[in-house]
């Protein structure tokens, strides 16, 4: 049920992102969403793709430092206050979010939040208790 995110170490230099995207595209792998967290000299590219294991092997073969990270994807209605209530479910249980990002599913018109927790299991339990839908691998990775 956990989603596999690819995390890639990226130097802050022209052409680096492009070369990683090319490795992914050459394998005919589709990126569903991505985000970059950066400091001065480097960044960490985090992305959700349709075939994460294959993308991981391809990047490793290209001598790119990357890892697979377990994240949770939560479907959320695209309405005022929806995210606020979701986050409240975590804060009242003292569950810490390491990072998060969002994308919109174009068919079902809801938002998908990607979360990385230090305690994924506790977060899962909280979500189920509050009646949220944790998205399945097949819904996010597609195949």
């Amino acid at each position: 049920m956990n989603i596999t995110q690819l995390s890639v170490f990226l130097e802050n230099k022209p052409g680096r992102l492009q070369s990683i995207l090319k490795t992914i595209a050459d394998r005919d792998i589709n990126i569903r969403t991505l985000t970059i967290a950066e400091v001065n000299d480097f960044g960490i590219l985090r992305m959700i793709v349709n075939r994460p294991d294959e993308a991981y092997e391809a990047l490793r073969a290209a001598h790119v430092t990357c890892s697979r990270t377990d994240v949770l994807a939560v479907a959320l209605e695209d309405t005022v206050g929806a995210l606020y209530r979701l986050i409240e479910a975590f804060s009242k249980r003292d569950i810490n979010i390491e990072y998060m990002y969002a994308f919109t599913d174009r068919y079902q018109a809801h938002s998908i939040m990607i979360f990385r927790f230090d305690d994924t299991e506790a977060a899962k339990a909280a979500l189920l208790e509050e009646g949220y839908t944790i998205m399945k691998r097949s819904e996010i990775h597609g195949e």
Binding site: Q5, S7, F9, A37, E38, V39, F42, I44, R46, R60, T65, C66, S67, T69, E98, Y99, R116
Partner: peptide, 11 residues
């Protein structure tokens, strides 16, 4: 050089 052994997805 950041090898996989020391890489983390967290800044």
């Amino acid at each position: 050089e950041v090898q996989e052994e020391i890489f983390s997805d967290e800044l």
